[in-house]
Amino acid sequence: LAALHAEGPLAGLPVTRSDARVLIFNEWEERKKSEPWLRLDMSDKAIFRRYPHLR
């Protein structure tokens, strides 16, 4: 499970980098069924690119 911001401008976004990794992994797991070539990237760089508020 990932903790998400409940309200405000960040509502629905992950609270920590660990939470972001959970979301990225879950999405990758779903997408790899139809796109088996996808690589999993959970590096800090990938997290910041996707969720800049975690910098």
Rank of each mutant, 00 (worst) to 15 (best):
L1Y: 14
L1D: 10
A2Y: 12
A2K: 06
A2M: 07
A2E: 03
A2S: 08
A3N: 13
A3V: 15
A3T: 15
A3S: 12
A3H: 11
A3K: 12
L4G: 05
L4E: 07
L4Y: 09
L4P: 03
L4S: 05
L4I: 09
H5N: 05
H5R: 02
H5K: 11
H5E: 03
H5V: 06
A6N: 13
A6D: 11
A6T: 13
A6R: 13
A6G: 08
A6W: 12
E7T: 12
E7P: 06
E7L: 14
E7Q: 15
G8D: 05
G8S: 06
G8N: 05
G8M: 05
G8K: 10
G8R: 04
G8Q: 04
P9H: 10
P9G: 04
P9R: 06
P9D: 11
P9W: 06
P9M: 09
P9E: 11
L10R: 04
L10T: 05
L10V: 07
L10D: 04
L10K: 06
A11L: 11
A11Y: 09
A11Q: 15
A11K: 14
A11F: 13
A11V: 09
A11W: 10
G12N: 08
G12W: 05
G12D: 04
G12T: 05
G12M: 06
G12A: 04
G12C: 09
G12V: 05
L13R: 02
L13G: 03
L13T: 03
L13Q: 15
L13Y: 07
L13M: 11
L13A: 04
L13C: 08
L13E: 04
L13S: 04
L13N: 03
P14Q: 00
P14D: 01
P14L: 01
P14K: 01
P14M: 01
P14I: 01
P14Y: 01
P14H: 01
V15M: 10
V15N: 05
V15G: 03
V15I: 14
T16N: 10
T16H: 07
T16P: 00
T16F: 06
T16D: 10
T16V: 01
R17V: 12
R17S: 13
R17Y: 14
R17E: 12
R17Q: 02
R17L: 15
R17I: 13
R17C: 12
S18M: 12
S18T: 09
S18P: 06
S18K: 13
D19T: 02
D19L: 03
D19K: 02
D19N: 03
D19R: 02
D19G: 07
D19W: 04
A20V: 01
A20Y: 01
A20W: 01
A20M: 02
A20C: 02
A20P: 00
R21T: 04
R21S: 09
R21V: 07
V22K: 14
V22Y: 13
V22I: 13
V22S: 10
L23I: 11
L23E: 02
L23M: 10
I24K: 00
I24Y: 03
I24C: 07
I24M: 12
I24P: 00
I24H: 02
F25H: 06
F25S: 05
F25N: 05
N26P: 02
N26A: 14
N26L: 14
N26E: 09
E27M: 04
E27D: 11
E27V: 06
W28H: 04
W28S: 01
W28M: 02
W28G: 01
E29G: 09
E29H: 14
E29K: 15
E29R: 15
E30H: 12
E30S: 10
E30F: 14
E30R: 12
E30Y: 09
E30P: 02
E30Q: 15
R31Y: 04
R31C: 08
R31P: 00
R31N: 10
R31D: 04
R31L: 08
R31G: 08
K32Y: 08
K32N: 07
K32D: 03
K32C: 10
K32P: 02
K32M: 07
K32A: 10
K33Q: 15
K33G: 07
K33N: 12
S34L: 13
S34G: 14
S34C: 11
S34T: 15
S34E: 10
S34V: 10
S34A: 11
S34N: 11
E35I: 09
E35S: 08
E35C: 10
E35M: 07
E35Y: 15
E35F: 09
P36Q: 08
P36I: 05
P36D: 05
P36C: 07
P36W: 06
W37H: 10
W37K: 05
W37T: 12
W37E: 14
W37I: 06
W37N: 12
L38C: 08
L38A: 14
L38V: 14
L38T: 12
L38Y: 07
L38F: 14
L38Q: 05
R39S: 09
R39Q: 15
R39P: 14
R39D: 06
R39I: 15
R39T: 12
L40Y: 03
L40C: 08
L40M: 06
L40V: 06
L40W: 03
L40H: 02
L40D: 01
L40I: 08
L40P: 08
D41Y: 04
D41S: 05
D41F: 02
D41G: 02
D41E: 04
D41L: 05
M42P: 02
M42G: 03
M42V: 14
M42D: 10
M42E: 05
S43F: 02
S43L: 03
S43V: 02
S43R: 08
S43H: 03
S43Q: 02
D44I: 15
D44G: 03
D44Y: 08
D44Q: 04
K45N: 15
K45M: 14
K45C: 11
K45P: 09
K45D: 13
A46E: 13
A46P: 01
A46L: 09
I47E: 02
I47V: 15
I47A: 01
I47F: 01
F48V: 12
F48K: 08
F48I: 10
F48G: 10
F48E: 07
F48A: 06
F48T: 07
R49K: 14
R49P: 02
R49C: 10
R49V: 09
R49D: 14
R49N: 13
R49T: 14
R49Y: 13
R49S: 14
R50H: 05
R50S: 05
R50E: 06
R50G: 02
R50Q: 09
Y51V: 00
Y51I: 00
Y51N: 01
Y51A: 00
Y51G: 00
Y51T: 00
Y51L: 09
P52V: 03
P52F: 02
P52A: 04
P52W: 02
P52I: 02
P52T: 02
H53C: 01
H53N: 02
L54I: 03
L54G: 00
L54H: 00
L54T: 01
L54N: 00
L54M: 07
R55A: 13
R55H: 08
R55T: 11
